[in-house]
Amino acid sequence: MANSRRMLVLRAVVEDYIRSQEPVGSGALTKQHDLGVSSATVRNDMAALEEEGYLTQPHTSAGRVPTEKGYRYFVDRLSTVAMLSAAQRRGIASFLSGSVSLADTLQRAARLLAQITGQVAVVAAPSLARSTLRRVELVPVAAGMLLAVVITDTGRVAQHTLAVPAMPGDDALQSFVAAANDECAGQTLPRCAARVRALAVAPRFQAMAGLAQSLAAAMESMADSERAGELYMSGASSLAHQGGLADLAPLFDALEEQVVLMKLMSALSEEAPGPGGVGVAIGSETHTPGLLNAAVVTSGYGRTSAPADGAAHPQDGAEASGGTEKDGSGTSTPGDGSAPVAFVGSIGPTHMDYAATMAAVRAVARYLTALLSPGADGREGAA
Rank of each mutant, 00 (worst) to 15 (best):
T67M: 05
T56D: 13
V42L: 09
E52Y: 11
A62M: 08
A86Q: 13
S39A: 15
A82K: 13
G70A: 03
L113S: 02
R111T: 06
G36A: 14
A124L: 04
A62H: 09
S61F: 10
G63N: 00
G91F: 02
A40T: 14
L112D: 06
I116K: 12
L55R: 09
E51I: 04
N44E: 14
G36V: 12
L106Y: 01
V122I: 10
E68M: 02
D104I: 02
T67P: 02
H59P: 01
M46P: 12
A109I: 01
A114I: 04
P58M: 10
T56C: 13
R77K: 01
L35S: 11
V37N: 08
T117K: 02
S97V: 03
L78A: 15
A114G: 07
S39N: 14
S94M: 03
Q115G: 12
E50Y: 12
V123T: 08
S85Y: 07
M83D: 15
V37R: 11
A114Q: 04
S61P: 04
G53N: 10
R89T: 02
A87T: 10
Y54D: 01
L35W: 06
A47G: 14
L84R: 05
G98C: 02
D76N: 13
T67W: 05
L49T: 07
L49G: 06
D45R: 09
V122G: 00
S79T: 13
L112F: 13
A110I: 00
L112Q: 12
R108G: 01
A62Y: 15
K69D: 09
T67V: 04
S85R: 08
A114F: 04
T60P: 08
T105Q: 11
A47F: 11
Y71C: 11
R43T: 11
